[in-house]
């Protein structure tokens, strides 16, 4: 269990680094899906089975496929144009990111009472999760469904080709 956590964490961080730093967009997307799968694995380790499965279903099944589609639709297949140049100075980004990391790690270290927390030996059943979702969290649930509908319609409208122009 402990070994599994560290192994998954290493995979997670390495693939995240690769996902944002590789030049080939397809490899970036592939590494991103490894990030999604390994965070789902961490969810399983944390006994959040349902969320882990939802993570795989949505991130790997839908988001990664959408990303690949977008890469393919926006780059030319033949001319290998999907390589993105590396002429940019990365120092600002590294500086900002490491500053944020420093602040976050510092704040985690300053909270000494974190070590006292232990995992309770409980298993939340899917049934009680669903009951909670439709009672205490009914409003966010409905808002989320509204948001998804709006996003779906919005996505179609934005990506729709204007027919007047082409004719």
């Amino acid at each position: 269990m402990i070994a599994a956590f560290y192994l998954i964490s290493v995979v997670l961080i390495v693939s995240a680094v690769l996902a944002v730093s590789l030049r080939n967009l397809i490899y970036c997307t592939l590494c991103a899906s490894v990030v999604f799968i390994s965070s789902a694995a961490l969810f399983f380790l944390l006994k959040a089975d349902f969320i882990g499965v939802v993570q795989i279903l949505i991130y790997v099944g839908a988001v990664a496929t959408l990303l690949l589609f977008a890469v393919m639709l926006t780059k030319n297949l033949v001319s290998r144009q999907y390589y993105v140049g590396q002429k940019r100075k990365w120092s600002y980004g590294i500086f900002t990111a490491s500053a944020v990391l420093w602040v976050l790690i510092g704040s985690i270290r300053s909270q000494t009472n974190l070590a006292e927390l232990v995992t309770a030996d409980h298993q939340l059943s899917v049934v009680s999760l669903g009951k909670e979702m439709l009672t205490a969290f009914l409003l966010p649930f409905e808002v989320a469904s509204l948001l998804l509908t709006a996003a779906m319609i919005g996505g179609i409208v934005i990506a729709l080709e204007e027919k007047k122009k082409s004719s």
Partner: peptide
């Protein structure tokens, strides 16, 4: 015997799309 077995089944089968796409690309 997982509590979320059926959902996991669909989640796993949905990842097949990705590999088909990668191979073709």
């Amino acid at each position: 015997d997982l509590q979320v077995g059926l959902l996991l089944f669909f989640a796993i089968t949905s990842t097949g799309t990705l590999s088909i796409f990668l191979g073709a690309w």
